[in-house]
Simulated assay, not measured.
Amino acid sequence: MASPKALLLVADGSEEIEFVTPYDVLTRAGFTVHSVGVDLKNETHAHMSHNIRIIPDFASLLALPWQSAHEAYDILILPGGAPGAKTFCGNKHVLKMIQNFRREGKWVGAICAATTALVESRKDFGGEEAKVKVTSHPSVKEKVQEDGKWQYSEERVVVDGKVVTSRGPGTALLFALTIVEVLAGKEKREEVAGPMIVAETL
């Protein structure tokens, strides 16, 4: 069985922990992981929310066949960080990718403020859809709730259908391990968590 494939987005102002932790944990789990920059001011790196520079695997969405990314990857992951999340919300390619992944029954993960991109993508998603249970950073709770299309939770990680959401930097490890579990099984999650000395309660 082929290993799962994950695509992580990154923008200027994305939260470092929420980007690096899923990238690291999924790699440990044997996933094929790629990252791609979204509207980066510098062609070589993303300037993250706390001054760390990240060099993505692909500098721009235009370096990918983004229209068919849902065919090549099993999950699309969006880190938070308010400026980065704002960039995701304003990029029509990102919103279309989210729609494509969801329409085709692929997974989408969003943490912290990036849940707002899920909300934005649904505005012209088309058709009626049952409320999806999600969480986010408390600072964007009202924005997530404003259109009444989402069931809000304050759990640290929420899985509903094929959407995984989480709250912030302090929940990034739990978010990443949950993604491992939903895509590769509980045994793989435990295999990864053990050598990392993960606490029973995160």
Rank of each mutant, 00 (worst) to 15 (best):
2 A>C: 11
2 A>E: 15
2 A>H: 15
3 S>V: 14
3 S>Q: 06
4 P>D: 11
4 P>M: 04
8 L>S: 05
9 L>V: 00
13 G>D: 05
14 S>E: 08
15 E>A: 08
20 V>G: 06
20 V>L: 07
26 L>E: 09
28 R>L: 03
28 R>Y: 10
29 A>V: 10
30 G>L: 15
34 H>A: 10
35 S>P: 10
35 S>N: 04
35 S>L: 03
36 V>K: 09
36 V>D: 07
37 G>M: 05
39 D>N: 15
43 E>V: 14
48 M>V: 05
48 M>D: 03
48 M>K: 13
51 N>R: 14
54 I>L: 14
54 I>M: 14
56 P>V: 09
57 D>R: 13
60 S>M: 09
63 A>G: 08
63 A>M: 14
64 L>M: 06
64 L>P: 04
68 S>R: 13
70 H>S: 13
71 E>L: 13
73 Y>F: 14
74 D>L: 10
74 D>V: 02
75 I>F: 03
80 G>A: 05
81 G>S: 11
83 P>T: 01
84 G>Y: 12
85 A>M: 02
85 A>I: 13
86 K>R: 12
86 K>M: 12
86 K>V: 13
86 K>S: 11
88 F>V: 08
89 C>E: 01
90 G>A: 09
91 N>K: 08
92 K>H: 15
95 L>V: 02
98 I>S: 01
98 I>N: 04
100 N>W: 01
101 F>C: 00
103 R>H: 11
103 R>N: 00
105 G>N: 09
110 A>G: 03
110 A>T: 00
113 A>P: 07
113 A>M: 00
115 T>G: 03
115 T>C: 06
116 T>H: 01
117 A>Y: 11
117 A>N: 04
118 L>G: 04
120 E>Q: 09
121 S>A: 09
124 D>N: 07
125 F>K: 05
126 G>L: 09
127 G>A: 07
130 A>Y: 13
130 A>R: 15
132 V>W: 04
134 V>S: 13
135 T>K: 02
135 T>P: 12
135 T>M: 12
136 S>I: 11
140 V>D: 05
141 K>A: 02
142 E>Y: 11
143 K>M: 04
145 Q>E: 08
148 G>Y: 00
150 W>D: 09
150 W>M: 07
150 W>I: 01
151 Q>T: 03
152 Y>W: 01
153 S>A: 04
153 S>V: 03
155 E>H: 13
156 R>F: 06
156 R>Y: 01
157 V>Q: 01
159 V>F: 08
161 G>V: 04
162 K>F: 12
163 V>S: 02
168 G>K: 01
170 G>Y: 05
171 T>A: 10
172 A>N: 02
172 A>I: 12
174 L>P: 08
176 A>R: 00
177 L>T: 13
181 E>N: 13
181 E>S: 15
185 G>F: 06
185 G>V: 05
188 K>N: 10
189 R>L: 02
190 E>M: 14
191 E>A: 11
192 V>Y: 10
193 A>E: 02
194 G>C: 14
194 G>V: 15
196 M>Y: 07
196 M>E: 06
197 I>C: 02
197 I>M: 14
197 I>F: 15
198 V>R: 08
198 V>E: 03
200 E>K: 11
201 T>I: 13
202 L>N: 08
